[in-house]
Design a protein around this nucleic acid. Sequence first.
DNA 1: CCTACCGATCGGTAGG
DNA 2: CCTACCGATCGGTAGG
Lengths: 199, 199
Amino acid sequence: MNKPQRKKAGKKDLILLKAAAMFREKGFAATSMRDLAEAVGIEAASLYNHIRSKNEILETICFDVANRFHTHIEEIDSNHDHAIKKVETLLRFHIKQMIENFEEVHVADREWRHLEEPYLSNMQAQRRNYRKRIAAIIQDGINKKQIANIDASTSVLIMLHAISGIESWHRSKAKISAEELENNMIRLLIDGLRNSDNK
Amino acid sequence: MNKPQRKKAGKKDLILLKAAAMFREKGFAATSMRDLAEAVGIEAASLYNHIRSKNEILETICFDVANRFHTHIEEIDSNHDHAIKKVETLLRFHIKQMIENFEEVHVADREWRHLEEPYLSNMQAQRRNYRKRIAAIIQDGINKKQIANIDASTSVLIMLHAISGIESWHRSKAKISAEELENNMIRLLIDGLRNSDNK
DNA sequence: CCTACCGATCGGTAGG
DNA sequence: CCTACCGATCGGTAGG
């Protein structure tokens, strides 16, 4: 073999991947650049040829994930489905993301508080906005009598946090399958939204 | 009592209180003993006249909270209520704890991974066991046809994580009242458990 | 990508 | 409860 195959921007991606895994496992603050370097297989100083700072890694992870969710909710908002269908689509996307891109999604959700300004305020605003959009979808469904008369913000709180609980599914030994988990979650979370007359 | 509201070991309690608040806000790893000392109003070195180490503070918080929940589920397990009533009692207790003792309950729930051995394994086992007991209550209800035929472990996952989402209620500005929040959560979380014939 | 190293800060101790 | 200070480790840089 002449040269090991070059992944496009491979080393930086590897750093981000390992960082996500370690930030999830130990938390951002408790992960040192030396730990990370060891996982990547280089010296700590060499990390800085690929990234500018520890915080930049967190910024990349958090905003990548946020953009993905933002793009998805834009799509949902622009279609004309039944409100329950919209919520279901949103939840299935969240669940899939949490299962398939577990490390980075979980880090974005739990460690964003360690961002520095101005990123911290930016992310805070994005998160607030995102929740408001989901609440608006639900409230719209309530107004159109498509959804039971519940408190929209409580519902959003429950749904989003329940989904972040998939973390403990990942950790559990006697796992049900990802598909079963998704369908069980959808059933339990969507059921409370239905009007008694279309249950 | 002869003296009005005299805290006994007052300084240590104050340290634990401030520590819980700071661990919640910034995380265990990102909170320094110097930060904590400043919040308490003494020098960092003086903290060690009241506590043995930073980790001991976390241990105290985590095991205090765990014991509280353990005691409560023992009570529930020893009564003979309808399964749905048992779950509701449990959920209301969790919600109240999360509202009234927010800082320490939230720290116990999020920061226990920073415990050192043997406390880490101990806490891990306690948590696993606690979830199993809740799942058993639900499964028992399913077997007795008191609860719909759902996946018990998914239900536990959703319920417990939804409740830890009360954190974002604390942070929100336009809050609904604590009582409303509790009742909304109970409604949304319990509804999915009911059999269609007693809905 | 490495060796060598920086100043800052960490948790914690000695001694009063 | 304080001053003074410890060794360890942190994120990051210089220079090759």
